[in-house]
């Protein structure tokens, strides 16, 4: 048992949000009106919400790793 699956998911979802931001940014030269700014702000909020998920995931991984370390002690 380890935290690797959680870390893998966190990396995947972080990559997904980065991919979304990148995809939206690619349209920027072709979309100049205020609606694009609205869309960008919406995507930024998604990125911001991801932080809570990442923090919770990190805390979880730390707790799981600590449990693993204790469990592996041999006497």
């Amino acid at each position: 048992m380890s935290s690797s699956e959680i870390r893998k998911d966190m990396q995947e979802f972080q990559a997904a949000v980065k991919k979304l931001s990148g995809g939206i940014a690619q349209a920027s030269p072709l979309w100049k009106d205020s609606r694009f700014a609205d869309l960008s702000a919406s995507v930024s909020r998604v990125a911001s919400e991801l932080k809570d998920f990442m923090v919770a995931g990190d805390e979880c991984c730390i707790a799981v790793d600590r449990f693993d370390r204790i469990a592996s002690e041999k006497y």
């Binding site: 991801l50 998920f53 919770a56 995931g57 805390e59």
Partner: peptide
């Protein structure tokens, strides 16, 4: 406790 928070955060996100 941390897993509960993580699952909750994942569902929320």
């Amino acid at each position: 406790s941390d897993l509960q928070d993580y699952v909750s955060a994942a569902r929320g996100f």
